[in-house]
Amino acid sequence: MKDLLRILIAPLMWLALFSAVYGLHGLLCNLGITSTALGFPLPRILLVVAYVIAIALQGMLLLLLYHPRIAARSPFVRHVSHVTGWTGLVATGWTLLPVVLMSNCT
C-alpha cells in the first residue's frame, strides 16, 4: 500500500491543488472583490500566491520522493514514483499558469 501511495501521491496532490485554486478563483469572482494592494488587484495577488505555494508544495514532494529515507526500496517503484512526481510538478506549473496570464472573472 505504501508503494502504491508513493506512485499516486504526486498527481493526487496536483488534483487537490488544481481544484483548490480553481475553487479559489470561482470564489473570488463571486465575492466580487475589487480592492487592490501594492497597486495590483487583490484577487490576482491571492491567486498568484496560491500558485507559488502550489508549486513549492509539489517541488517539496518531489524532493521527498527522491530522499533516500522516504523513496521506495524497489527500483521499479522508485522509477515510477519519480516520473509521477515530475508529472505532478509539471502539471501544477502548466495548468495553473493562467493565474498570472489571464484576465480575471470575464
Binding site: I7, L8, P11, L12, W14, L15, F18, S19, F76, H79, V80, V83, T84, T87, A91, T95
Partner: peptide, 17 residues
C-alpha cells in the same frame, strides 16, 4: 514498461482535471 505505467497513472489523474 515503467514509463508506460507512470503515463497511465498520470493520464488517470489528469483526466479528472
Amino acid at each position: 514498461h515503467g514509463w508506460i505505467i507512470a503515463a497511465a497513472v498520470a493520464l488517470a489523474f489528469l483526466s479528472f482535471g
